[in-house]
Every structure is written in structure tokens, then in C-alpha cells.
Design a protein around this nucleic acid. Structure first.
Lengths: 251, 251
DNA sequence: CGGACATTTGACAAGCTTCAAGAGAAGTGG
DNA sequence: CCACTTCTCTTGAAGCTTGTCAAATGTCCG
């Protein structure tokens, strides 16, 4: 698009990767980085609202989200939508598709996104030649399942207030982990419909719950940014307990 | 326990494995089978209602469920429980624990279970020396996440009737796939509290929904067995679409 | 027979959804 | 620069699905 690359664009060389410099990801050996760079077939951008992966698309490729937000979702035939999880920079996208079979989901960009694209048919090669990276991918897969597990507990057993508190805590902590807190607040590109679809609530009830929490002074949502005003209280409401952050693998 | 091994017990040699003979699992090379057998540190049995993995236990080992049913769950401090998924013979248990970090869940036996036990610290060796098996494990992990994704859609966006129909279809098809349908019915060891905890409903409402469906002649639940009387209708209610079953990896 | 536990039902309460409509905010084109 | 459209957020009211409480019935087992 631009003649000059924006800071958010994928750099041509992986050793210039902004993400690896955040200190949130596991360091890799030079030869592994070299392999990753050769494995990366392409980079791509998707505008806000665009489809990264179509629901029911089956031969999708594998991506690492480099900048921006996206989300995985499923829908029912009458349009009811469930957001499965949110994807932040560093997240690997498309493993479930690659491993086919289990039912499909779509991935939509929430903001403009830049992605590193990997050929999905090269995955077996990766496992064969770089078992360490295969191990890391499995770790990421299990880790993401852990997030979905938490989310299922939220949708199945928490009430509306607890659900909203949980989502705010969860996203804030994840942003914090990858160094995206600025002035005590984080970018927050979700609208209330996204929040409702993630939590299994109606739009109206989501709005009322959100207003109640902000009226209590627990958070502030303004100009597309989220500021946590009382993390303690929110964590208590949600029963959100985070474990000491561990370094994440990054492909 | 018994002097004579029951048919459900784990055989000493993997080439006598009953599961592999069902035709539901991917065939493996003799040397891989050999490795799996050496990798298997032990076998174990857990009585119905017993804990396979305690919630918050972190150094858990890796298991393959050989016979019986179990389930993964999480609880909130006041006792609200969410069942994350059900484990049937052939399922791999404990990957999320092994890969730590993401929040913890418990695993409880629903019936008497027999398990093949693998040392969790040997997983890296497996990836290094048998990348094919590592690849398979990743596949299983992604596949299980697909199940949790479906389950999240169910808990978040389906109504009570659709949820119950979904659960019945899902479990019936999984049992069918591994050859456990007998006389047109399958073992069904869940009680209504388990169903309620899986679907995010109250016990009472689960009961009423179940009765309504069986009064309509869609299913029959009797003597611990489930018989599907109108699969078409149940699938339509739940919007359950299964894809042609693919062979599952088995460790 | 007695006790523990699962299932079943009815009545009532409540949390959440749906419907409806107004107020902001942001983009578009004349 | 302003009318116009569109989208998001907000609020109130009414209704329905689901949860809670309570108690009876059924089942299994020692």
C-alpha cells in the first residue's frame, strides 16, 4: 500500500522481527530462525473486517499474526455467532484447519492485520527436520486449547458480570504480556457486539453489564482504548488467577 | 485386581491392542509400535468417580485412555462446574498439563478406566526421535481443540433443546466411530448432573429438556444405555453435521 | 427394611433476551 | 460546511427461557 513500510508491517527478515524483541517469546537458535524465514512463504495484510480464513474453507494456510487483532468464530445457520478466541500478535492461526477433520471456523480481522504466511503442506517437513519447532507448535496448540477451556467455563458457568470481568482481565493481561500497554491502557478494538458474541450474551445485556462495571469505577472504555481502574476487583469478580507468564514460542 | 484379566484391561503388548483392531485408528509401522510400547511406562486403572488428574495438579503424566469413559472439567470456587469434554477410548489425556502454563483442569473417571501411562518428560525424546508421532500428537491436540470449539458454540449460543440434542449426537457418533455401538445403542454412563455440567444448564432444566425430547420419540435413555430413535431430527435440531470420519492417530 | 442417590414434577423467581426508539459519532457527498 | 446516512451505544419495558426451591417417586444395595 504505502511506499514506506509502516512500523506494523512484517519486516522482510525475521531477525528484524519486532515481536522477538519484546522479550515475551522464547529465543531461538540462528539456524532455526533461518529455517523459519525460509519456511515463511509470504506476508499478507488483511483490512479490518476482512476474512483471514473463511468459515468452511478447508485448505487454509498457516499464519502467524504479526500485528493487529483478529478472532476465530463459528456461526449457526440463523446467524447466531460465537467468538472462540481473540488473536493477538504472535499467535499462530490455522492449525485446526491444517489438521482438518474437526469442524471448521472462520477467522476475521478486527483491525488491519499483517501476517506471516507459511505453506501448510510444509508442516510435515518442519516436524521432520526441526523437531524442536514441532514441539513448540504442539505447545502453542495445547496452550490455545487452554484458553478455549477457560472461555468455555466462562460461557457455561459464569454470570454476565463475571463474564465481562473475565474478558477484560484476560485481554488486558495478554496485551500486557506482549508489551502493548501504553500509559496504563491498551488498544481495544472490539465493539459491544464482539464482546456479546464472545461471551454468549445479547448485545443489550452486554451493554448494561459493561455500564454497571464502569459506573462502579472498575474500568474505562473510551476512544478504542481500555484502562483498568481496579484490577483487583475485576480479578476477584471473575476469579481470574494468572500464573507467572512463561515465554511463548513464536514461529 | 483380578487374577484373570478382564477384556477391558490394557494388554501387556501393544500389538494385542484391542483399539487398533477397530479400524478407527491410523495403522503404524512395526518400529513405531515398538517405540510406543517401550515409551509406555505403565498401565493404570482408576475406579468410577476417581480422579485421573487432580485439578491444579501440575506435574501430571500423559495417558491414553484404553477403556472406559472420563471427562475433563474445571470448577469455580463456589462449586459451579463446567465439563470441558468427554474422553473415550483412544483419547490422549494430559497434553495441556504437560505443556503447563495455561490454566489447569481436572480429569475424572466416569466409569472404571484403564489407561496406558507415558512419562511426560519423555515427550521431547518422542518428538526428536519419532517426528511422525510428534506430528500425530499435534494432530490430536488440534482435533481436541476442535471439539472444545464446538462445545463452546453450544454453551454460548444454542438453547437448551439444541444443547441436549448436540450432546447426544456428538457422543453417539464418537462411540459409533470406535465401534462401540451394540444393538443400535451405546453405553451412556453420564447422569443428568454430568449432562447439565457439560451444557451449562441447571440439573432441573436439563431433566425437563431431556424428557421433552424423549417424549417426542427422538431418543431413549434407559439402563445406562442411549438409543437414538430419530437421528435425523436430532441432527437437525442441533445443526450437527459430521464430516466423513478420518482415521485417528493412537499413541 | 433403611439409606443414599438419581430422577421427576410443580411453582415461583430472576436473569437475560427481545423489541423499540433515541442519542452520539463518524463518514459521504453535494 | 452542512445535510444525510450509517453504525454504535444507550435506555426502558415487556416477555420468556432458565434457575432455584421444595418435595415426591424411583432405584440400587447392603
Amino acid at each position: 500500500m504505502n511506499a514506506t513500510l509502516p512500523a506494523s508491517a512484517c519486516p522482510p527478515a525475521c531477525d528484524a522481527c519486532r515481536l522477538r524483541r519484546t522479550g515475551a517469546f522464547t529465543p531461538v537458535q540462528p539456524e532455526q530462525l533461518d529455517f523459519i524465514q525460509r519456511f515463511r512463504a509470504d506476508t499478507a495484510t488483511v483490512p479490518a473486517g476482512g476474512a483471514v480464513v473463511h468459515e468452511n474453507q478447508d485448505n487454509a494456510r498457516l499464519f502467524t499474526l504479526y500485528s493487529g487483532w483478529a478472532f476465530r468464530y463459528k456461526t449457526l445457520s440463523d446467524g447466531r455467532r460465537q467468538i472462540l478466541n481473540f488473536l493477538l500478535p504472535g499467535d499462530l492461526v490455522g492449525l485446526q484447519q491444517e489438521f482438518g477433520d474437526a469442524s471448521m471456523h472462520g477467522v476475521e480481522a478486527l483491525t488491519d492485520c499483517t501476517l506471516c504466511v507459511f505453506p501448510s503442506d510444509g508442516l510435515w517437513t518442519l516436524f521432520r527436520e526441526h523437531p524442536r519447532l514441532g514441539y513448540d507448535i504442539t505447545w502453542l496448540s495445547a496452550h490455545e486449547e487452554g484458553h478455549v477451556d477457560d472461555h468455555l467455563l466462562t460461557a457455561g458457568r459464569r454470570n454476565a458480570t463475571e463474564r465481562v470481568a473475565m474478558l477484560l482481565m484476560h485481554l488486558y493481561r495478554r496485551m500486557e504480556r506482549i508489551g502493548l500497554v501504553e500509559d496504563g491502557s491498551v488498544a481495544f478494538p472490539l465493539n459491544q457486539q464482539h464482546i456479546a458474541d464472545a461471551l454468549g450474551l445479547s448485545l443489550v445485556h452486554t451493554n448494561k453489564t459493561l455500564r454497571r462495571l464502569s459506573a462502579l469505577g472498575l474500568h474505562e472504555l473510551k476512544n478504542g482504548r481500555l484502562r483498568m481502574l481496579n484490577t483487583r476487583a475485576l480479578a476477584r469478580i471473575a476469579e481470574y488467577y494468572d500464573r507467572p507468564p512463561r515465554l511463548l514460542p513464536l514461529l
